[in-house]
Amino acid sequence: MINSIVNKFRQRNFVLGFVAVLVIFVLLGIYKPYVLIEGIQRSSLYALIALPMALLLGVVGIINLAHGDFMMLGAYFAYFMNVQLGMDPLVAVVPALIVFFIFGMISYYITFKHVIGAPELNQLLLGFGLSLVLGQAVNIIATNQPRKLSLDYVSSSMKIGDFQFGTYEFIYVAAAILVLVGLQLFLKKTRTGQAALAVGQNPRGAKVVGININWIYLIVFAISVAIIGAIGPIFGTRNTIFPEVGLAYTLKSFALIAVAGIGSLTGVLWVSLILGLSECLVLSSLEYAKWSDIIFFALIIGVIMYRSHQRQVK
């Protein structure tokens, strides 16, 4: 682990990027410190939500368009645990992991199992349909009334000099790093993780050397759903939840992964940093705040077109 980090610093591009990020941090910190803090927190949330999808899409190549809806389910799970049993949402992360691991397995068996190896289009449409079913089922059961938990600790704040900022949101930063490290360890150190990488590279080859590829797909899908389901409670502590809350995050996650390059987990962190910081920067000016949404879409279109251009040149 440490060796690989040291090795990264030997690469010129990485060092340049790292220095650029530091410079941007310092400049932003002097210009508008709250933008820096907010931006880091916001981008960690984006990265956190995108990472399980990066695992599923980048490692085994399954596109799950119902990604954000599993998070929404997790948030509702925590909400009702809190209202009915008085369980703290952050404690609910543990049962959510287990519940959503099983739920992920079931949904894989019912749906995605049948489109592995089928045209990509079928996966897309299936995810689209699943997302609709999950969102609408919650809509029927819990109505589309927006819900919000009132917790004391989420509004905790810190003061440095005369500059005050919220500290609770740093939980996103911690969680994102935890998930990233956890996934890296899973992929590098465990047998299942290594097998998953092999399946991603060449399913037929993996089958030939005796890997049970159905099992790998199942496990990776279930892990991805378990993580995103467990992120739901964390998301729900600070944000208002409603049945369609996940849709925007599905799109954002996918775009982040596409921009970072499919297969790269750490790249997701960097790209979400760019997105989060620039969104916060635009949001911080009164006049242009209404344009903040467009940054994201411009980023996707720009990068995807750049990739397309590269492909043409090749």
């Binding site: 609709l132 079913v133 999950l134 609408q136 809509n139 029927i140």
Partner: peptide
């Protein structure tokens, strides 16, 4: 409310 469920 939620007739889209059937579409899904």
């Amino acid at each position: 409310y939620g007739h889209l469920l059937v579409y899904g």
